[in-house]
Amino acid sequence: DRYEFNINGVHFTIDDAEEELIKLIEELLKRGARAEEIEEVIRRWER
């Protein structure tokens, strides 16, 4: 599934997002994580 979200006006799209990654990102968003922090999480996840 495609997952899309915005952080401070920056648009992100993840194709074939796994449910666990989506939950992790949503938790980070609730905590007010910065875009750079979430980008790093996504990079690590994709390795």
Score class of each variant (00 low, 15 high):
D1W: 04
D1R: 15
D1I: 15
D1Y: 07
R2D: 03
R2Y: 07
R2C: 07
R2S: 09
R2A: 08
Y3N: 02
Y3R: 02
Y3I: 03
E4A: 03
E4K: 03
E4W: 03
E4G: 02
E4P: 01
F5A: 02
F5D: 01
F5W: 04
F5C: 03
F5E: 01
N6I: 13
N6R: 04
N6G: 04
N6M: 14
N6Q: 13
N6F: 13
I7Q: 04
I7H: 06
I7N: 03
I7E: 02
I7D: 01
N8P: 02
N8H: 08
N8K: 03
N8F: 04
G9W: 01
G9I: 02
G9M: 03
G9E: 05
G9S: 03
G9L: 03
G9Q: 03
G9Y: 02
G9P: 00
V10N: 05
V10Q: 10
V10C: 12
V10R: 06
H11E: 10
H11K: 12
H11A: 10
H11Q: 14
H11V: 15
H11R: 08
F12S: 00
F12Q: 01
F12H: 03
F12W: 07
F12R: 00
F12E: 00
T13V: 14
T13D: 04
T13K: 06
I14T: 02
I14L: 10
I14W: 03
I14V: 08
I14Q: 01
I14Y: 02
I14H: 01
I14A: 02
D15P: 12
D15L: 11
D15E: 14
D15T: 09
D15S: 07
D15V: 14
D15N: 11
D16W: 14
D16L: 11
D16N: 15
D16T: 14
A17T: 07
A17I: 06
E18V: 07
E18R: 03
E18F: 03
E19T: 11
E19D: 11
E19K: 09
E19G: 10
E19N: 07
E20L: 08
E20W: 10
E20N: 07
E20G: 13
E20C: 06
E20M: 08
E20Y: 06
E20A: 11
L21Q: 03
L21K: 02
L21V: 04
L21A: 01
L21T: 02
I22G: 02
I22S: 02
I22H: 02
I22E: 01
I22D: 00
I22N: 01
K23E: 09
K23L: 13
K23I: 12
K23D: 08
K23G: 10
K23N: 12
L24C: 11
L24P: 00
L24A: 13
L24W: 06
I25F: 02
I25C: 03
I25D: 00
I25P: 00
I25M: 03
E26Q: 15
E26S: 10
E26C: 09
E26A: 11
E27W: 15
E27R: 14
E27K: 15
E27Y: 15
L28C: 05
L29M: 11
L29A: 05
L29P: 00
K30I: 11
K30A: 11
K30W: 15
K30G: 10
K30C: 07
K30D: 09
R31V: 10
R31A: 10
R31G: 09
R31T: 10
R31S: 11
G32D: 08
G32N: 10
G32H: 08
G32L: 04
G32I: 01
G32V: 03
G32K: 07
A33V: 09
A33T: 09
A33K: 05
A33F: 06
A33S: 10
A33H: 05
R34H: 11
R34Q: 15
R34V: 13
R34E: 14
A35F: 11
A35S: 08
A35W: 10
E36I: 07
E36R: 08
E36D: 11
E36Q: 10
E37G: 02
E37A: 06
E37T: 07
E37W: 05
I38L: 07
I38G: 00
I38C: 03
I38E: 00
E39I: 15
E39A: 12
E39K: 11
E39V: 13
E39H: 15
E40G: 05
E40P: 02
E40A: 08
E40L: 09
E40Y: 09
E40M: 10
V41H: 06
V41C: 10
I42Y: 05
I42E: 00
I42R: 02
R43S: 08
R43H: 15
R43V: 09
R44Q: 13
R44I: 11
R44M: 15
R44H: 13
R44G: 11
R44N: 13
R44P: 01
W45Q: 01
W45N: 02
W45G: 01
W45A: 02
W45P: 01
E46Q: 09
E46V: 10
E46H: 12
R47P: 06
R47M: 14
R47A: 11
R47Q: 13
R47V: 12
